[in-house]
Design a protein around this nucleic acid. Structure first.
Length: 422
RNA sequence: GGGUCGGUACCCAAGCGGCCAAAGGGAGCAGACUGUAAAUCUGCCGGCAUUGUCCUACGGAGGUUCGAAUCCUCCCCGGCCCA
């Protein structure tokens, strides 16, 4: 199976230029392709991850991957999928964002060997307005530009569209042209919301250079109910561990619905297609085990945050959802610290009065409530239900310092005994 | 300004002298069930040092009464009607 067929089978190709022509080109030898994202924040999110993984797939197949950080286009703002004008970012912010994003890209894409991070600011900034109008503007008709979905939507909206954002697609088209000229890039990939901008580049290259450039895009991710997920809907899961901890990142995938994981596992996973299919078949037999979700979460978290972080995130998830806390590794508790409310006490004496403790750490708002909870068997410590007169200390501390309190199913509180506490 | 109806716990809403920490519903919390889902069923649902003929609480402040969410007075707020 060639690369294109593999991508198709994974559901990664929604629209494309002539696929046969692209396949033929790939068969001739390694090519250079690019995927771009704008540094509008100091972190990428899971949506961008598909693009990075895509670059990786081509790299693994022997091709050269260019990851483009849109220092220039990020300044202008992409009107696609937005109902209102974007705030322009200043130089300093953009520079910081590009640096932060580069680290994230390098976790997925090899930027040292057959790969490179490029910033369109490098070639966009020097261009004079007259040059741009002559070399790019001459090849684009307003008629075509107005027909683009992203532009039309904005023309119809009450906010309108500024000339600046209207120019966005030409800037992106120019990126492709420049990379075509200077890096022999012949393929651009992106999400289907980028399709309009992408084909603008393909058109420009054909008109300006008379050569064929290729493009393909993947479908937008499905929402939990199986419908299309809008660009702005749904909480974003970031690649930056300070924005989305490895635990939360891991959980994002564990919590995918069956419909979502069926779509996303093939799209994200670097495993061979056969293995992916087998996994999904196993999953269908016993969906309640969430095998597909867990495998995907483990794999992707390991790529983005490293194997150790992925292991800790998985262990932490097991502790919180059904697993036995007493056999969890210490790394699970370290990961948990900060994910669930955590209190630190200097002495294990704090554990002697369970009712008082529940109130102190805020798991119950009054002693009455705390007693009620305990009477109703609603409180567990390290997985064991406790009774009214039971000292938590008797249950022992895990790893010499942790006690995991659980109220009901969802509410947790980690108590840590540390001599360093004041 | 006059008249009238009303203001009850997180929300809606019963109660109209003691059996009222106060019906019912919703929300919330817990238990069972469950796939880290939904539905369903069950329990709880003001506070506490002494769980009590305890404290706090029925718009606010006083009063009547052995006893008031319930009766009286004044005040504040809202709906409706009249001017």
């Amino acid at each position: 199976m060639d690369l294109i067929a593999d991508l198709q089978a994974r559901g990664l190709i929604q629209v494309s230029t002539d696929l046969d022509a692209l396949s033929a080109r790939l068969a001739e030898g390694p090519i250079t392709l690019y995927y771009g994202c704008d540094p509008t924040a100091d972190s990428l999110h899971v949506g961008n991850l598909i693009g990075l993984v895509m670059l990786r797939r081509f790299q693994d197949a022997g091709h050269t991957a260019l990851a483009l950080a849109g220092g220039a286009t990020g300044m202008v703002g992409d009107p696609s999928g937005r109902s209102d004008e974007r705030n322009l970012l200043d130089d300093e912010t953009l520079g910081r964002n590009v640096a932060a994003i580069k680290r994230q890209i390098s976790r997925v894409v090899d930027l040292e060997g057959a790969g490179e991070l490029v910033d369109n600011r490098d070639w966009t900034e020097p261009i004079t307005l007259l040059e741009f109008l002559r070399d790019v503007g001459k090849f684009a008709t307003i008629n075509q530009m107005m027909a683009r979905e992203s532009v039309r939507a904005r023309l119809e909206s009450e906010h309108g569209i500024t000339y600046t954002e209207f120019s966005y697609m030409l800037l992106q088209a120019n990126d492709y042209l420049w990379l075509h000229d200077h890096r022999s890039c012949v393929l651009q990939v992106g999400g289907s919301d980028q399709w309009g901008n992408i084909v603008s580049g393909v058109d420009l290259i054909r008109r300006a250079r008379g050569t064929t450039a290729h493009a393909l895009s993947w479908p937008l991710l499905l929402a939990p109910d199986g419908t299309k997920l809008g660009k702005t809907t749904g909480a974003r899961t970031w690649l930056d561990p300070d924005r989305t901890s490895p635990y939360q990142f891991h959980q994002h995938f564990v919590n995918l619905s069956d419909a979502e994981v069926a779509q996303q596992l093939p799209m994200f996973s670097l495993r061979p297609l056969e293995e992916v299919r087998g996994l999904l078949e196993d999953h269908d037999v016993a969906p309640e085990r969430r095998r597909a979700q867990r495998e995907l979460a483990d794999e992707i978290t390991a790529i983005v945050h490293g194997v150790d972080a992925a292991d800790a995130a998985r262990a932490a998830g097991e502790v919180l959802f059904g697993g036995d806390p007493t056999v969890a590794p210490e790394s699970a508790f370290v990961a948990l610290r900060g994910e669930v409310p955590t209190s630190t006490f200097a002495s294990p004496d704090a554990l002697d009065e369970p009712i008082d403790l529940l109130v102190t750490i805020g798991l119950a708002t009054s002693k009455s409530e705390a007693r009620r909870l305990v009477d109703q068997r609603g409180v567990r410590v390290n997985g064991t239900q406790i009774g009214p007169d039971q000292a938590i200390r008797d249950l022992g501390l895990l790893h010499g310092r942790y006690a995991l309190l659980r109220k009901g199913k969802q509410s947790y509180h980690l108590v840590e005994i540390s001599s360093e506490a004041g």
